[in-house]
Design a protein around this nucleic acid. Structure first.
Length: 572
DNA sequence: GCCGTTTTCGGCCCGACTGTTTTCAGTCG
């Protein structure tokens, strides 16, 4: 039982309790426990195994939830959850995806109309039975019918790359209006969370009408869902929804703070405001009627005795305490990056030659790269065997003479095979400048086997780094079942680096585990894994993930100069 | 259901918009 599985069951419990009309603070307690579990590096079962009181030491987990977690670990479910599932059919939860339907309305549909699925809801709405319910009327019924066929695709989160592309296109367009003085994206997109559920755009504009009109006409906008005096909600053609808020200039900082979130960060910040007899909302920080701050985010944080918190850290994972103690990290920036240690060429499945990749990297301001084509196990990617690899490295040596101003390391992305051996012989690996070991196949093996493979790779004297350690694909594929504390301890002991793979579909390590690796003193490398020249441009996503992990330039090996970086490589 | 330098009860962040009512509950972020 993995942490995410336990979290999912508690989240499901909360959903079902909501439909049942349970106390909202009780629901919040479950959601808060889910968050705690998702932010944990340690295996929850291991924590529980240490003793009865250990689970309740975790924030938001008391006696009751600790008991339920133990129950899940032992039996894969809880009696409470089984009872809830008995009472509320699974299809009822699908109705929550419809816009305008929350737990109360869904509860009414289920309890009073006995509707248990989207199909039954559609039928009930078509027959006009929905509008007969108290609290429902024709408009709600109409809205259900309009949205029900597309309901399955609602609520899908998109990758940070897709979200940023859309957000920037829209913001750039809105900025062209004369009536507009400021437009910025806030929300999870500004925090560079790996996926975004919607876009939050804030603007200062003389004419809210004009900017809302402009947004509704944007080519990316499919439909206007809501429109008031200061707020408009639209759906984009990719299914993502976007909120535009128009705020007064003197409130822009407070609004940015408010709408950047996260919710958990804001709850904590507003609690601090309350403690000081202040009230914080999107219009400013107030003492009674008097505005204390609001024009800039810095002002708002300062008025609460806090340093300005970089958006990527705003998850209530300790950043507020750091801001109070004036100990916020100076986060790594794109301009700190000097090297890229994971990329492919036409030798395996890349689209560009060694020289083209080197030139493209140089054009992007890098001073060193590693060419790391696939090993033979990745047969679909035309992976290299020992012989071809040696020839490939000879080619790299030739290219070194054809381009100046950039160093090229002879590397390999070497598969860790299912039997825990490496895909390239030690004799050949010994000749490499840089070896990234990765798991591509057998990701679903049990933890014991996965760990044997990872530890074997770490102990190999020629392996420099573990690439995309979990193998997860954001929103698509769960990563391998890794015992992270053991994994990181071994990497620390043997001096092996950990990669943050910057490809927005991977972002692997994730923020939580990258922070845990850093805490172990493991050097992190942020790499693009580019398969073309343009592929080098994903580096900002990796840097953003590193920032979310609280990493500083000193924690990231490829911020070093080439000679400093080479000194860090173990000499064996 | 959690939490506590107001500690075993009584709190628990805040506001816009919509639809259904006619002063407000629900939804949403």
């Amino acid at each position: 039982m993995r942490n995410q599985d336990i979290a999912n069951l508690l989240d499901l419990t909360a959903d079902l309790l909501e439909i049942q009309g349970a106390n909202s603070f009780r629901i919040r307690a479950y959601r808060s426990a889910v968050r705690t579990i998702e932010g944990l590096t340690e295996n929850l079962a291991d924590v529980a195994g240490k003793g009865a009181g250990e689970l309740t030491k975790l924030p938001g987990i008391g006696k009751d939830l600790a008991q339920r977690i133990v129950e899940i670990i032992q039996s894969g479910t809880t009696t409470q959850l089984d009872e809830l599932r008995e009472e509320v059919p699974a299809g009822v939860l699908d109705m929550l995806k419809l816009p305008g339907l929350g737990p109360k309305k869904v509860g009414a549909l289920f309890h009073e109309l006995h509707v248990t699925s989207l199909d039954e809801l559609k039928q009930a709405a078509e027959e006009g039975r929905v509008s007969l319910l108290k609290g429902f009327a024709k408009k709600t019924e109409q809205s259900i019918l309009e949205n029900i066929d597309a309901a399955a695709q609602f609520g899908q989160r998109v990758s940070i790359a897709e979200a940023k592309r859309a957000a920037e296109a829209i913001c750039d367009d809105l900025r062209q209006l004369d009536c507009v003085t400021q437009v910025e994206v806030a929300g999870s997109c500004r925090r560079s969370k790996e996926t975004c559920g919607d876009l939050d755009i804030l603007a200062v504009a003389d004419s809210p009408t004009e900017i809302m009109d402009r947004l509704s006409e944007h080519e990316l906008v499919q439909a206007v869902l809501q429109r008031g005096d200061t707020k408009q909600r639209v759906r984009l053609i990719n299914g993502l929804e976007a909120d535009l808020r128009v705020v007064p200039e003197e409130s822009f900082g407070a609004a940015m703070q408010y709408f950047t979130g996260s919710k958990e960060h804001n709850v904590e910040v507003r609690r601090r405001a309350q403690e000081r007899g202040l009230k914080l909302n999107e219009y400013g920080l107030f003492r009674g009627e008097e505005s204390v701050a609001g024009r800039t985010e810095e002002d708002v944080y300062a008025a609460l005795g806090l340093g300005w918190v970089p958006p990527e850290l705003r998850e209530n994972r300790g950043e507020i305490e750091l801001a109070e103690a004036n100990k916020l990290p100076k986060l790594v920036e794109m301009s700190d990056i000097r090297g890229d240690l994971h990329m492919h060429t036409t030798a395996s499945d890349g689209e560009a030659s060694i020289l083209e990749m080197a030139q493209a990297a140089k054009d992007r301001g890098l001073s060193y790269i590693a060419i790391t084509d696939h090993s033979k196990r990745a047969s679909v990617a035309n992976g290299l065997d020992d012989k071809r690899l040696l020839k490939h490295w000879k080619d790299i040596e030739k290219v070194r003479g054809q381009i100046s101003g950039i160093e090229i390391l002879k590397g390999i992305e070497c598969d860790i095979l299912e039997d825990a051996t490496l895909d390239i012989s030690d004799e050949v690996l010994a000749e490499a400048d840089w070896v990234i070991a990765v798991i591509h196949y057998g990701l679903k093996q049990p933890r014991k086997q996965i760990m044997e493979r990872l530890l074997n790779a770490i102990k190999n004297p020629y392996v420099c780094a573990i690439g995309h350690p979990s193998g997860r694909i954001v929103n698509k594929r769960q990563g391998a079942d890794i015992d992270y504390p053991e994994f990181f301890q071994a990497a620390a002991d043997y001096g092996v680096f950990m990669e943050i793979n910057a490809n927005p579909a991977r972002l692997d390590l994730d923020d939580i585990h990258a922070a845990a690796a850093r805490d172990k003193g493991i050097p992190i490398v942020i790499n693009t894994d580019a398969h073309s020249c343009g592929g080098l441009d994903v580096m900002p996503y990796g840097v953003a993930q590193a920032r979310r992990a609280g990493l500083e330039a000193k924690d990231v090996a490829n911020t070093r100069t080439y000679s400093e970086f080479c000194k860090m490589l173990r000499t064996s």
